[in-house]
């Protein structure tokens, strides 16, 4: 097999992989947006950031 054909096949596979990744990202983001619109944000998502003062006291 000539070098040019091997190179062409590799490039073709790379293009397919890149296109597959882009396609996955697009479809996944659309589905996430639809889910968000339909079900909204989960209300049970209280978030507590690390209390640096308490952490430092524990550290000493």
């Amino acid at each position: 097999m000539p070098f040019g054909e091997i190179f062409g096949a590799v490039i073709f596979l790379i293009v397919i992989v890149i296109f597959g990744n882009i396609w996955y990202s697009i479809v996944d983001s659309i589905l996430e947006k639809i889910k968000y619109k339909l079900f909204g944000k989960n209300e049970n998502t209280a978030w507590h950031t690390l209390d640096e003062e308490k952490f430092e006291k524990k550290d000493n």
Binding site: H48, L50, D51, K54, F55, K58, D59
Partner: peptide, 11 residues
């Protein structure tokens, strides 16, 4: 491990 303890004790 200390951070885990601080966070756990916070909640």
């Amino acid at each position: 491990a200390k951070k885990m303890r601080t966070l756990f004790n916070q909640v």
